[in-house]
């Protein structure tokens, strides 16, 4: 495997740079995926039938905490990659750990939020609006959960193998994924919660 020392570690081999490019293409496919979900949501948003509307169930508090957690975690994963580029394994592990913990907290709050909705009688089966809400939020949440598992596996590999072209590549790709989820959340925050509360 040829290693090009002039490039950052995560780009150092041809395979690595292909993987990063491939992941960008994958994110390119995630855009129509979420765009479709948003379209479905926006079509359904007024079709709440006999169930509650967004205004009646959304609470701004937990949503703000979720937003804060996810935005900060996007910052810490950036710090982790920065540390990785300088070869600071320990700092990288710490920042990545913080990122994942914040992700976990986000999932926890989201699950609590879902439980509250269901408790209030707003379930997946209640109305077209709620179906689309649960599936949109759920898809994002499933991405975050998958990211948590994936990130944990990468952290374990870095802990065992150290920072090398293979692990650096994985960590960098993970950071792209995490930033992407953040962007999606900003759209959810604006088009679901803010629009719903207004």
């Amino acid at each position: 495997m040829k290693i090009d020392a002039s490039k950052p570690l995560e780009y150092a081999t041809e395979e690595n740079s292909n993987k990063i490019f491939g992941f960008w293409v994958f994110l390119g496919a995630e855009i129509p995926l979420f765009a479709t979900l948003f379209t479905v949501y926006l079509v359904m948003v007024d079709r709440f039938a006999s169930g509650p509307s967004g205004k009646e169930i959304f609470e701004i508090g937990p949503v703000l905490i979720e937003t804060f957690l996810l935005l900060s975690s996007s910052f810490t994963i950036g710090l982790a990659i920065h540390a990785m580029r300088h070869g600071y394994k320990k700092a990288m592990m710490v920042f990545m750990g913080i990122t994942l913990l914040m992700g976990l907290a986000f999932i926890g709050i989201e699950i609590t939020e879902f439980f509250t909705y269901v408790h209030e009688g707003a379930t997946l089966q209640t109305s077209g609006f709620l179906s689309s809400l649960f599936v949109l939020l759920g898809t994002h949440g499933a991405h975050v959960s998958f990211g948590f598992l994936w990130g944990s596996v990468i952290m374990y590999q870095i802990w065992r193998q150290g920072i090398n072209p293979a692990t650096a590549n994985k960590a960098f790709i993970f950071s792209l994924f995490w930033h992407f989820l953040d962007v999606v959340w900003i759209f959810i925050f604006s088009f679901v919660y803010l629009k719903g509360l207004m």
Partner: peptide, 10 residues
Amino acid sequence: QPLPSSPVEE
């Protein structure tokens, strides 16, 4: 009957 609307505007 469900809520009236149509996919047309989409």
